[in-house]
Simulated scan of single mutants.
Amino acid sequence: MAIPANFDGQTPVIDSKDVVFIFVNQQSGTLQSVITPTVPVLRQRIAALSKVASLSDIPVIACATKVDSLMGPIIPEISRNAPHAHTFFYDDELMVWDNKEFVELVKSTGKKQIVIAGGSVSVALVNAALRAVSDGYQVFAVLDASGANTELERQIAVLRLIQVGVVPIGSSAVLCEVQKMRNVDHEMDLYDNLRSISPAYQLLYEAKCGKNS
C-alpha cells in the first residue's frame, strides 16, 4: 500500500490552519461532459467546500482557462460561497501546474497542505495533484467533487493518485476534518453546510437543535 506523501509519518488529516483549497477547471463547459456524479450534486458539493473554506478562513484559489475558451466561465458556486476566493486564469498551458505564476501563487499562501477538486478527475485533478505532491505538498483529492465520464475513469484516477501518495477524500470528510470540534464559531452554519451534501446528517442537526426543521 502506498504511503501518503510528504506527511513524514504523521496521520494524513487536514489542518485547517495550514491548508489551501484549489478548484481546477470547475467551469460550465467542462462540467457539460460530466456523468458522475450528476452535475447538480457536483455543484452542491463544490458550494459546500467553498463555504466551509470561507467560514474557516481558508484561502481558496479557483483556476480556469481564459474566459472565452470552450470550457466556459467558472461556476458561480465558488465565488458565491467563498467571496475571498482568488481567481486565476491561464492561456497557453494545457495543465495549470505548468504555469509558473500559478505555482508561485500557491506557494505564496504559505500553506503546506492542498485540498483539490477538478472539473475532470482524470485530467484537471490528477495532473495538479501529482505535480503538487512532487513539489512537496501534502495533497487531498476530493473525488466526489470532481467530475468523471465513467466510473472506470474515476477508478483509474484513484489508482494514479494513490500510487504517488495523494490522499483520496470525500466532501463530507473535508467538512468534518476542517471543523474538528463542536461548540466552535459558526457551529450551526457548519452543521447546515454539512447537511446540504449529506441529507442523513439532518438527524444530528435535529438532535442538536432539539427540534424538527
Rank of each mutant, 00 (worst) to 15 (best):
D144R: 07
Q26F: 07
A2M: 07
T150K: 01
F7A: 10
N127E: 00
A128W: 05
P12E: 14
A117Y: 11
A132E: 02
V60I: 04
A2Q: 06
D68Y: 12
V133C: 06
A48S: 05
A132L: 02
D192E: 14
T109N: 14
N183L: 13
F140R: 04
Q138I: 08
M181S: 14
V121P: 04
Q10M: 13
A62V: 05
P12Q: 15
H84P: 07
I156V: 09
E187P: 08
Q44F: 04
K66R: 06
D135K: 15
E93S: 01
I197M: 10
V34S: 09
V115S: 00
D144C: 02
G72T: 12
T30F: 04
P76G: 07
R195L: 11
T87S: 07
T109W: 12
S196Q: 10
I169Y: 07
A64C: 08
N183E: 14
A207R: 14
M181Q: 07
Y205L: 15
G29K: 07
R45M: 06
M1V: 06
Y137C: 02
K66A: 12
V13C: 11
H84E: 12
L203C: 14
L105E: 07
Y90E: 01
L175H: 02
S134F: 08
V34G: 12
A64N: 08
F88Y: 10
N127R: 05
C176H: 05
C63P: 11
Q44S: 13
V13Y: 10
P40W: 03
K100Y: 13
Y137N: 01
S172H: 15
I74G: 01
F140G: 00
G110Y: 06
T150S: 09
S122A: 02
M95Y: 15
Q32G: 05
E151V: 07
N6A: 08
R182S: 06
A53L: 03
N25P: 03
D135Y: 06
A141P: 11
A82H: 03
V158L: 14
A124Y: 05
V34F: 12
N149F: 11
D185A: 15
V178P: 00
S146Q: 11
E177Y: 01
Q179P: 00
S198G: 01
P83T: 04
Q32P: 05
I169S: 02
M95L: 13
A53V: 00
V178H: 00
Y205P: 03
I116C: 03
Q10Y: 12
A129F: 05
D68R: 06
V178F: 01
